[in-house]
Amino acid sequence: MTQLVWNGLFVGSFYALVALGYSMVYGIIKLLNFAHGDLYMLGAFTGFAVLGAAGGVTSAAALPLLLAVLLATMVITGLAGVVLERVAYRPLRGAPRLSLLITAVGASFALEYGTRAVAGADPRVYPVRLGGTPLEVLGARLTLQQLVLTAVAVVLMIGLNLLVTRTREGRAMRAIALDPRTSALMGVDVNAVISRTFFLGSALAGAAGVMAGAYYGKIDFLMGFLIGLKAFTAAVIGGIGNIPGTMLGGLLLGLLESFGTFWLGGEWRDVFAFGVLILFLTVRPTGLLGERVTERV
């Protein structure tokens, strides 16, 4: 039982990290950024390239080195997110919602097949792997590396939450989420804040990408697709636009998958997990912690 919970939480923390970017962007400019899963993929490949450039490393130095690579990748993926927003989304800011959605799908394809053109269609394998010695905790088998990865994910999420709720920057973000025009009138630089939002969301996705690459080992240009969908789902369960809700949503989805597999077998996992979600959303359409959207004219 504890093993199932741990499996679910571990996978769920990846979903949550990726879902946060979805949720933030949606919360602020009401855009479903379908290219977000591909930023996760881009992060995995960036980490791969950075590690390759760093050259041969011993496994003893693997963890600190990976943390350095993680930071570098977060910056690079974050900037990629900013560029994406500038090129693909900002010019359409006033356009109908549907055009933006299609642009996002287009951006997703461009990132996937652009990566394929550069890095090839073959899957790549990370040069540094987090294998690690297994520990027994309360009957669950886990590794130190898994704990470190989960801890990193939690630290990133808490950091993000603090940033959004406690800082000036976060206040600007929330203000834009409520009403972009009034925020602009109050002197908030809307474009700059949206850019920074994309930076943060993309950096988190990039971090998840590097962590997945280092832990699972295999990366390929389509790896962002499935997790993008899952993260989107997680964001909706948690209440899209709500940061703590999104984190909970990610963990919940991971747990549902883990228990679904256990109770009904692998074939029925997605049927179970998504069936529960549909039921849940019919009861509570705004998600776990989402607030009822007030009608604004």
């Binding site: 093993q3 199932l4 499996n7 679910g8 571990f10 996978v11 990846f14 997945a212 699972y216 295999k218 389509l222 790896m223 697709f225 499935l226 998958e257 883990s258 597999t261 256990f262 077998g265 692998g266 074939e267 996992r269 997605d270």
Partner: peptide
Amino acid sequence: TEAVTPKESDYSANITN
């Protein structure tokens, strides 16, 4: 007999099964 979803990274749930 365990069926998995292809193209994922984490098969720990299936493996626990």
